[in-house]
Amino acid sequence: MHRCRLVLSACLLFVLSCSPVAAQAAIGVAMDDFSYTDTSAEPTNQTAAHERRLAAFMAALRRDIDADQRYRLVPSAQDGAAFKVIGGIQKTSTLVQWAKVAVIDVGAKKLVMDKLYSFRGDNDESWERAEVFVSREVMAALGTPAPVALAVFDFELEDMTAASAGASAGSDASYLAEVTGGVREALSQSGRYRIVDVGTEAARAGALRDCGGCEASIAQKLGADQSLMGVVRRVSRTEYTLGFQVRDAGTGAVLARGDSGLRMGADYSWKRGAVRLVRDRLIDSQ
């Protein structure tokens, strides 16, 4: 009988830990849309552009907070919010925007963050960079490190075989795109990284594997904290190796790297191998 009670107790603890009640232990955070004021007195009406950029700014900020399982977004303090994030953005000229952001500890009824920022606001990229910075500050005020802004560049192919370069160029490009997409998805889903859009910046630099770490400076221009560059090395039609390295965007220092051993498999298995390598050597190792 005593043993049965222990088993039942253990089962009950397991069920409770997996129940929605346990999930609600995440700290509630409420966030209203930031206000927007234009005092630039410019003749051109840019209201539509401002509304679109502000909406994207708020969506990204909420996404950053919601990505961390220790927090959950709630409508208001009445719905269980422990913190409330408020703010407003003011346009004072063609280039200059000011953002006022505060984080309130609802229970203690006190400000844990109250800051004023200035940023360039005449294009989408500037707004995205401002959001990354504000997100980092807000997450720090909540007690959680903000996701690392990571520029994941397209994986490159280093073909060491004697095969004709043009024979499988189309399929190679398709499989490389799958590798890059799979790695970006795995890193984003980890909650530790925010993937920065690299656009066409890397294409202008040529092969990143031969540029001596130039991907770090490109990532810094894009507003990222770190860069990731990966290579698929084809040894034969059925053998390949994979490698990647992560650099600090500011200093260029290598922060992490991973290399697979010789693998058997065709090109359609590149994605599976790359995602596993990144999980083992970067995500899980942290």
Rank of each mutant, 00 (worst) to 15 (best):
residue 81 A to F: 04
residue 78 Q to S: 14
residue 118 S to P: 06
residue 239 E to D: 08
residue 233 R to C: 01
residue 208 L to Y: 04
residue 90 Q to A: 12
residue 258 G to D: 06
residue 84 K to H: 10
residue 163 A to M: 10
residue 266 A to H: 11
residue 185 E to W: 01
residue 131 E to R: 14
residue 277 L to S: 05
residue 155 F to P: 07
residue 261 G to T: 10
residue 148 V to C: 02
residue 239 E to S: 01
residue 162 A to E: 11
residue 50 H to Y: 14
residue 140 A to E: 05
residue 235 V to A: 06
residue 102 A to W: 07
residue 92 T to N: 10
residue 13 L to D: 03
residue 22 A to C: 13
residue 38 D to P: 08
residue 223 G to H: 07
residue 147 P to L: 00
residue 69 Q to W: 08
residue 247 R to A: 00
residue 26 A to M: 03
residue 122 D to A: 08
residue 266 A to N: 12
residue 129 R to E: 09
residue 220 Q to A: 14
residue 8 L to F: 14
residue 136 R to I: 01
residue 271 K to L: 06
residue 236 S to P: 10
residue 129 R to M: 14
residue 35 S to C: 03
residue 251 T to A: 05
residue 199 G to D: 06
residue 223 G to D: 03
residue 223 G to Q: 10
residue 58 M to I: 09
residue 195 I to D: 05
residue 116 L to S: 13
residue 228 L to E: 02
residue 148 V to Y: 04
residue 106 V to Y: 06
residue 267 D to L: 10
residue 39 T to A: 09
residue 176 L to H: 07
residue 49 A to E: 12
residue 233 R to F: 02
residue 126 S to D: 13
residue 203 A to M: 12
residue 118 S to Q: 15
residue 95 L to K: 11
residue 107 G to C: 03
residue 141 A to R: 03
residue 17 S to A: 14
residue 204 R to S: 12
residue 8 L to D: 08
residue 110 K to N: 12
residue 124 D to S: 13
residue 256 A to V: 05
residue 260 S to M: 05
residue 7 V to P: 04
residue 85 V to S: 06
residue 6 L to E: 13
residue 112 V to P: 03
residue 190 S to D: 03
residue 113 M to F: 12
residue 234 R to A: 00
residue 64 D to A: 06
residue 136 R to G: 15
residue 71 Y to I: 03
residue 10 A to C: 14
residue 72 R to I: 06
residue 29 V to C: 02
residue 113 M to Y: 12
residue 171 S to G: 05
residue 255 L to Q: 10
residue 79 D to N: 13
residue 204 R to K: 14
residue 145 P to G: 03
residue 97 Q to Y: 10
residue 50 H to R: 15
residue 257 R to M: 11
residue 275 V to S: 02
residue 190 S to L: 06
residue 166 G to K: 01
residue 62 R to K: 13
residue 48 A to S: 12
residue 28 G to P: 05
residue 232 V to Y: 02
residue 207 A to R: 15
residue 125 E to Q: 15
residue 130 A to R: 04
residue 262 L to T: 09
residue 268 Y to W: 11
residue 196 V to P: 00
residue 131 E to W: 02
residue 273 G to W: 09
residue 285 S to P: 11
residue 120 R to P: 05
residue 103 V to R: 02
residue 188 S to W: 05
residue 207 A to N: 15
residue 194 R to S: 04
residue 147 P to G: 00
residue 22 A to H: 14
residue 112 V to S: 01
residue 131 E to L: 04
residue 43 P to A: 07
residue 217 S to Q: 15
residue 256 A to K: 09
residue 31 M to V: 07
residue 225 D to L: 00
residue 270 W to S: 04
residue 264 M to D: 14
residue 118 S to K: 14
residue 232 V to K: 02
residue 17 S to M: 13
residue 232 V to L: 07
residue 253 A to P: 03
residue 233 R to I: 04
residue 30 A to S: 14
residue 253 A to W: 01
residue 71 Y to S: 02
residue 173 A to P: 08
residue 243 G to A: 11
residue 193 Y to C: 05
residue 85 V to P: 01
residue 49 A to W: 12
residue 264 M to G: 11
residue 71 Y to W: 08
residue 31 M to E: 07
residue 208 L to A: 04
residue 130 A to S: 08
residue 128 E to C: 03
residue 153 F to K: 06
residue 141 A to Y: 04
residue 243 G to W: 03
residue 156 E to G: 02
residue 199 G to M: 07
residue 145 P to N: 04
residue 79 D to R: 13
residue 43 P to M: 07
residue 134 V to R: 03
residue 258 G to S: 07
residue 101 V to C: 04
residue 240 Y to F: 15
residue 79 D to S: 13
residue 173 A to I: 10
residue 123 N to W: 09
residue 69 Q to K: 11
